[in-house]
Design a protein around this nucleic acid. Structure first.
Lengths: 326, 326
DNA sequence: CTGAAAGCGCTTACAG
DNA sequence: CTGAAAGCGCTTACAG
């Protein structure tokens, strides 16, 4: 018992006793057996991170990676270890097939990105505590999200301030998968309206699948670009593909049209410092989510208010002042 | 005891008894407590994935993400769960500070990417079984690696076959961090030599930090590009940045010079199907590593021979036949 | 085919 | 400040 107290740093033990025990532990190379501890204390000392995965789309959005690294680093030097959990494991068979959930393996779970609403309540049954990171779940506590409305407004305002009167918004096909896209789109239209402008929406096939769907759509879109046109795109990947398509046809962002992007973060492989963009530091948000989880687990009585994280506007050469306007 | 046999599917139990027990388990909503099981059986049913991280470089190479997802999916429907482990946890204090290692939390570990040699032997002391994925560890068993020599040769040969006689190889600053770069470079020179050609090496600052180090280096490099020049770059990110720098100065890959890339994989965010490249399916390699680990854990007596994975050549429009040559 | 016994390595709750 | 006792939920090894 005294040994347990010394090794856990709990309770009062005489300094002499403490020294003796610590020395013995060191000499014997003592390593605690976490499974035994977990069994008795009913805590696994494991936090899961839930990642979206789909059977037909193996590669989850690469921006998720920065979240994961942030969460993992936020747990460093704590007593917790991070497990990666698949969304499909929650959906299949009510989550009771996967050992993580079936076996009481997690003390808490951080759900990242869009989580189907069916999974939301299941998760809370399966895991004691949940934190929602950039997810479609938004409550007064335990959530962290990018402020997408702010990002959309920033990008739109930058174009308007630079003198662009013709605004195009490039978006993906079909209904938005992530909550953020709708929020942002709304803010873009609103910001334009308050300046007396309209935003045209484009869902050109080539942004994501160029040139699989033929060159016609590409020509048409690129032809419509003028030096007075400001284009707003979703993220750095979309910006990159669009820029490449335009450049191939002789129109360069920052020269022949203006390009701004609502969601980017340099340092994650794809570097494009010249891109005018709103920067979201996903790594830092991951850190924050981990700290929130630690607080929830270690001080269950202290509520953690949700946080809306604003992106930072990063001016770049793809947005030049509109010369005709000035 | 009979209950245990039924729920684990071990030993012989009469069908009647089995049915009774299974029904009772279902009615009571029985979920096994993995910590208790792990304590008794001395198995944690956890596999770790070791990720490179550095205190001053928070964002690990995004290509690692595909490995992680592959490993995680390869463990799906097995009894194992994946934990993410930080390289710094192994290096600090001999790995005995982090609960994952100290607490006997892992049955096996998959080490991804370059692992410092000091960590190699420590890991094997800390964890019962290791698999090395695209790491600098290469042995007869338990390793999986990209065949970088093959990739370098493929890319070089493609340029030569298309009639390019002036070959440039763009590489990063300083000594190569990952084993693959040296192996590849060697193969590039060798392939060129066997065709009676030389390869010039360039380490232009702008590839990774453009234009932080000024435009002079950019101008100089781009000026030297001719329609007879074939450029070999490391990966899709480098290709993208180089292409953007060149295009900004009026030279387009596939028109004003040829561009090939030794390591890319579409579907991971950055899409560039027109890029001539060697494609490595990291997700599939991750799957393979997971399967290898499962085999090692479940059939310890069957050796798993190491595997060298060859990339696939994907022709694209950034490499056109050299017109002057034909 | 079935089950009583013992024990894995810890912690909780209590007595000195 | 220190420690003997009991038990967490499983599995292993053995007896019927």
């Amino acid at each position: 018992m005294t040994v347990s107290r010394v090794l856990n740093g709990t309770g009062r033990v005489s300094p002499a006793m403490r020294a003796t025990i610590q020395q013995a532990a060191e000499e014997l190379g003592y390593r605690p057996h976490l499974a035994a501890r977990g069994m008795r204390s009913r805590k696994s000392m494991m936090v899961g991170t839930l990642v979206q995965n789909e059977p037909h789309n193996k590669l989850t959005h690469p921006l998720t990676w920065a979240f994961i690294l942030g969460i993992n680093d936020g747990l460093a030097h704590s007593s917790y270890t991070m497990a990666l959990v698949r969304l499909t494991d929650v959906l299949e068979d009510g989550g009771l097939q996967a050992p993580v959930f079936k076996g009481h393996l997690l003390d808490g779970l951080i759900a990242v990105n869009a989580i189907p609403s069916e999974a939301e309540s299941r998760l809370e049954d399966l895991v004691p505590r949940c934190v929602w990171l950039d997810a479609n779940v938004w409550r007064p506590i335990n959530c962290i999200r990018r402020d997408e409305a702010h990002a959309g407004a920033l990008a739109t305002k930058a174009l308007i301030d630079a003198g662009y009167r013709r605004l195009l918004c490039v978006r993906g096909h079909g209904p938005a998968k992530h909550f953020s896209l709708d929020l942002r789109l709304q803010a873009i239209h609103q910001e334009a309206q308050s300046a007396g402008l309209e935003v045209e929406e484009f869902a050109p096939p080539f942004v994501f699948r160029w040139p699989n769907e033929g060159w016609d759509a590409v020509y048409k879109f690129v032809d419509a670009l003028t030096p007075e046109t400001g284009v707003i795109v979703e993220n750095i990947y979309a910006a990159d593909m669009l820029s490449r398509a335009c450049t191939a046809l002789g129109k360069r962002p920052g020269h022949d049209f203006a390009l701004v992007c609502c969601d980017a973060h340099m340092g994650g492989g794809l570097e494009w410092p010249q891109l005018s963009h709103v920067s979201f530091k996903r790594y830092d948000m991951g850190l924050l989510a981990a700290k929130m989880m630690l607080s929830i687990l270690e001080e269950p009585d202290t509520a953690c208010p949700s946080q809306l994280i604003q992106g930072e506007w990063m001016a770049g050469e793809t947005l030049q002042p509109n010369k005709k306007q000035q």
